[in-house]
């Protein structure tokens, strides 16, 4: 087995050794289920009646599914920093990082392994969130393509969160600082979007830089290559920065 997969799988399993991953998943699922119910209620009570006789009517996919994925993205903005802080900051604090840095593996393998563990966790989250819209298939028809593109959008958004979190985690030996900084950074990108779209200070650049603008096209059912490129470049940038940071630390101490 390749070293990256070895580290990825072990770290992923370790997440579930403690109650942390279980409680995060449980709370996430509970809150999102509440949101889901609320959105369905809204759909049945308001939207459906408004839709009668309208030429352009919003379906259940517009009202419930897209918004549910957006909410999942917002919730994970809070949750992912707690996971990424473990990757390097917590390991430094526990002095266990030396196990990996003394082993015959490169920093690239180390960083990709840690990233893989986070991606696996994100896959679990996306799968659990997707169960909710999929349950609607029991009673109605859904735009399945749009559910898939929303799920892909959520996965990509969360992976880019994870890459940024991994880098910030590599900067410090204080897990709390890593978590708060990651949260702040991710929130800043949302604020960039708000500022970019406001009437007084609109800026295409700000909108482009924010995750959320790219996520919107996925939840609208559009998979643009430029959105894909944004996520790939964003994640790649932070992974490279993380590798460089670890190497720099070896040089500077």
């Amino acid at each position: 087995m390749n070293k990256i997969t070895l580290i990825g799988l072990t770290e992923f399993k370790r997440l579930f050794n403690s109650p942390l991953a279980w409680s995060l998943l449980a709370i996430l699922q509970f809150i999102l289920a509440m949101m889901f119910l609320l959105l369905i209620d809204e759909f049945i009570a308001a939207t459906q009646t408004e839709n009668v006789g309208q030429e352009i009517a919003f379906g259940v996919t517009d009202i419930v599914v897209s918004r549910l994925y957006l909410w999942a993205g917002v919730m994970m903005l809070l949750v992912l920093p707690i996971l990424t802080m473990r990757s390097f900051a917590q390991e430094r604090l526990d002095k266990s990082l030396l196990l990996l840095t003394s082993s015959p593996l490169s920093f690239t393998q180390l960083v990709l392994g840690k990233y893989l563990a986070l991606l696996l966790f994100i896959l679990v989250v996306v799968a659990m969130v997707s169960l909710m819209p999929l349950s609607l298939f029991l009673g109605t028809t859904l735009d399945f393509g749009r559910v898939l593109s929303s799920a892909l959008g959520l996965f990509l958004t969360l992976s880019s969160f994870a890459a940024a979190g991994l880098y910030i985690s590599s900067l410090t030996a204080q897990p709390i600082i890593a978590a708060i900084s990651t949260f702040g950074f991710l929130l800043l990108l949302v604020v960039l979007y708000l500022s970019g779209t406001s009437n007084t200070s609109n800026s295409e650049l700000f909108i482009y830089l924010a995750h959320i603008s790219h996520f919107f096209s996925f939840t609208d059912g559009l998979i643009h290559s430029h959105d894909l490129a944004y996520y790939v470049l964003f994640s790649l940038l932070f992974l490279i920065l993380t590798v460089r940071r670890l190497d720099n630390q070896r040089l500077q101490g």
Partner: peptide
């Protein structure tokens, strides 16, 4: 070179949840 090395740092690098 690291393949030929075994290292125990000052604080043993252990994962307490394993």
């Amino acid at each position: 070179a690291k393949q030929a090395l075994g290292y125990l740092p000052e604080a043993p690098p252990l994962y307490h949840d394993m």
